[in-house]
Amino acid sequence: MERDEMLRLYHQMALIRRLEEAAASLYQEGKIGGFLHLYIGQEAVGCGVVSARRPEDRVITAYRDHGIAIAAGMEARTVLAELLGKATGCSKGKGGSMHMADVSLNFWGGHAIVGAHLPLAAGLALADKYNKTTAATICLFGDGATNIGYFHEAMNLSVVWELPVLWVCENNQYGMGTSIERASAVPEIRQKAHGYGMPNARVDGMDIVQVRKATEAALKHVRTNGPFLLEAVTYRYRGHSMGDPERYRSHEEVTKWEKNDPIGIFHKYLIKNKHATEAELEQSANQAASEIQEAVRFAEESPDPAPEVLFSDVYVKEVG
């Protein structure tokens, strides 16, 4: 990675962290409705994976999507406006936290039914293969999604049809409150690829440098040889969603992982290898904080969708 790229990613991770903290506050103030799933702790995965793509590569993810949206190039103000249900949000206030997308950024959502977007990803990749382009589709999902039928159907189909899709499992070790040991027949998600004869890798998802490197290698494989499963082992510091009593894990466990913080790890890496100075990183982090402040202001000042749009976009148009 070039130095500029590393600094850009450091800033992006800090931006996501501040964004999610702001979202948590706005939720507690009652300004965000519905469910809110925070990406805090998993930043190295989204930023590392998505930064390895070419512009023509598609990205699609599950409902823990704010960080992926930022990594795909969405502005924080657009994410926050959607969280507040505003007309200026990426989905015009009709999607909310779990349904962020920006097709112009090749970011295809934000999908809230566990596993349902894996077949969609297969279809996106099928379209690129059909049109004989060199684009790949990157599909992110959690460890919980690997226990549902959709995962197995989509793995199988992607191999049978040799689809250019990179399956990325963000293994944060819990499907809601059920640990992977209690829900999955095998402890490592990558093992599930073996049943489909699919090449695979497991990477430390707290280390963005490793994630980026593994993704580059995986994408190279995907473009020439078809599907690949990359498992990134990570951890979410906050609950599954905002209403999570967290009875399923100990404080000690969370603290242990917090010492392994992805931003902290990258910080140390950049300093140790003299890619950046403390002052530069501090400035980057401060800038992220003020960007989020400004984005929150934008979102709060944005108008609600007009009542007239209630019936718009249900159908495209009539034919004939």
């Binding site: 598609r58 077949p119 990803a121 279809g123 099928l126 049109n131 039928g149 159907e153």
Partner: peptide, 28 residues
């Protein structure tokens, strides 16, 4: 075979892949 595609017996993924291909501009 590219335009008349036999699938595995997996209805959720047949429609899901069709939906994804439609999102990307095809007409499955």
């Amino acid at each position: 075979p590219e335009r008349v595609r036999d699938t595995p017996i997996a209805e959720g993924t047949i429609v899901g892949a069709a939906n994804g291909a439609a999102m990307a501009g095809l007409r499955p």
